[in-house]
Design a protein around this nucleic acid. Structure first.
Lengths: 194, 194
DNA sequence: TAGTTTTGTGAACGCCGATTCACTTTTTGG
DNA sequence: CCAAAAAGTGAATCGGCGTTCACAAAACTA
């Protein structure tokens, strides 16, 4: 059945995503993917020619999904400042649900093929934020600034701020307060005024 | 000769640091360290009981050095805002000289022992920035804000902004302009006023 | 239903890198 | 100058992991 095949393919991708989310790329061996997906190692290779290809797809599909969400916010209504705040808040909230995943996708080094794919993904993330920055500068809401550096700094700022709490699992402040603080930081950083 | 021994030990540490700086932890195998340091693999184990221990020392000593430099700036003279700008600029300039090193030390995942050491190192970095933030808030230069999140965001912002240019080696803007843009971003982010 | 093709299995293979160890070279102490 | 100890060597070992393959089960086709 065709249905069974595409279901298996999806199951493999889901297993790989889950493993990355739980323990980063290091924890995502083919053996582990096989175990979690309920297939044998050999079967994985019926669906993906190599580990690299599998994880490039895991990465790009997840990032594409996030980018769609961000794009909808950034291209929506409201002032540039409001849209930026909403985009950062949305990303941060989603990242908090799967922190390792977000980190792995944004920063964790992997084999060169995955690395190459991530460069493209990062650029995509950056482009979304660059768009709001340009809009805000055009409308006079934001002062003149480097959009390249600004976008990179925004991504870096909330990545780091989100990763930190993961590492010392104890003493977690409320997620809501954390998101709020990050949004405020980014908001001030771009120099927004009403 | 005692001198020879400590010289060898230093040579091993230097070789390991150099390899991480050039290609991240992935490129720093014991074999490579042996080759660069001019010793045999076996000799490495006369000085360090395991690879983990070696790289924990590489990490902590380098970070301690950076922290000393930052601390000197942060505890120096001038307004909180000036000190923050100087600290960020100094860190960014130094990181640009060995971008892989900075990235590896701040973000690159490694084995659990190194990972544990890095958590401590990050906290040290954060503490330095927290100190300026508190000073600025106390003097009224900075508005009320979360120092934990602020410090993390600052570290994250310039890390990401510095890492990005490494990845697409072509089209590098001038380092000076990059440092300037990052400093301005962080400056606005903490809401500094004269 | 018999034959063929597709899908699934998991043990085996090959590679790579950390660690060890039998051995050689150098240093130390008398 | 000569044991004994320390330092250094690098090939062999060992474990883990990606990948392959000979074979089994299942699904189509006529």
């Amino acid at each position: 059945m065709q249905e069974r095949l595409s279901e298996n393919r999806a199951r493999i991708l889901a297993a790989a995503r889950q493993l990355v989310a739980e323990g980063g790329f290091r924890a995502a061996s083919i053996t582990a993917v096989a175990r979690v997906s309920g297939l044998s190692t050999g079967a994985i290779y019926r669906y993906f020619p190599s580990k690299s290809v599998l994880f490039v797809e895991v990465l790009t599909s997840a990032v594409a999904h996030e980018c769609e969400i961000l794009t909808a916010i950034v291209d929506g209504d409201g002032s540039a400042r409001e849209r930026l705040r909403a985009a950062v808040a949305s990303f941060a909230r989603r990242a908090l649900k799967g922190p390792h995943l977000a980190f792995a996708f944004i920063a964790e080094p992997a084999d060169p093929d995955v690395e190459a794919a991530r460069i493209l993904c990062r650029r995509d993330f950056g482009d979304v934020f660059k768009r709001v920055l340009r809009a805000g500068m055009a409308s006079g809401e934001f002062p003149k600034q480097s959009v390249d550096v600004g976008a990179a700094c925004i991504v870096g700022a909330f990545t780091e701020a989100l990763v930190r709490p993961v590492e010392h699992a104890g003493g977690r402040r409320s997620d809501q307060a954390l998101v709020r603080a990050i949004v405020d930081f980014c908001d001030r950083a771009v120099g927004g005024t009403d």
